[in-house]
Amino acid sequence: MIEVSGVSKSYGKTLVVDGVTLSLPKGGLTSIIGPNGAGKSTLMSMIARLLPMDAGSVVVDGLDVTNVSGDVLARRLSILRQDNHLTARLTVTDLVTFGRYPYSKGRPTLEDRDHVERAIDYLGLADLRHRFLDELSGGQRQRAFVAMVLCQDTDYMLFDEPLNNLDISHSVSMMKLLRDSARDLGKTVVMVLHDINFASCYSDHIVVMRDGRLFLQGTPTDIVRQEILSEIYGTEFRVHELDGNRIATFY
């Protein structure tokens, strides 16, 4: 379980995350949605101890992320940020193999190699595995980063907009992959999404942030509603029931 209590962050005088208290149960897929600048990425970075918080605490399975050694947490929780730019020139295989760093410290065992192979396979990177990251398209690179995080094989996986740069077919298979790892392997997946319909169809739980605050949370049925979405985004929405899913249109 991830317990976020009273977490705040400000830059200068602007409070960008304002006393968020939230608990994310173990297992399942949670989506965080909300307008640009709502503080989603900031909150996620604080949960994963990439960013120090000004107030509050985050506890993951009883471990306080600000105190626990980075090494221990790296085997429990992993994160992929929204923008990733590497200056180091690594091949896809190198990158994915570094996902095993918390376990192998750079000396991958046979078991580590298995994890790498599986992750590369899941994300359809077999043909690209010897390419350097700076020789890939944006979507291919994004898949390589996701493969690295999968390879880290932690109980909790946080993804900030994992569908960045992905085409529709890859978006669908990425969502399926992450949902299946939550369902079949008992992983806890938390992701920031902008696509309401992906959030609606694949999440067990949706968290809405607005203006640095926790605005609402609930199941897709609770959240994906005309009046709620319109209020969150200030845009007209229509919500339809299609094949048992709630689909929002907004054109």
Binding site: R81, F98, G106
Partner: peptide, 19 residues
């Protein structure tokens, strides 16, 4: 390996548990 990971930046390093 530590230097390679550090070369990926502070965020990647923290994520991988590197000080």
């Amino acid at each position: 390996d530590r230097f390679t990971v550090a070369g990926m930046g502070e965020d990647f390093s923290s994520n991988l548990g590197l000080n």
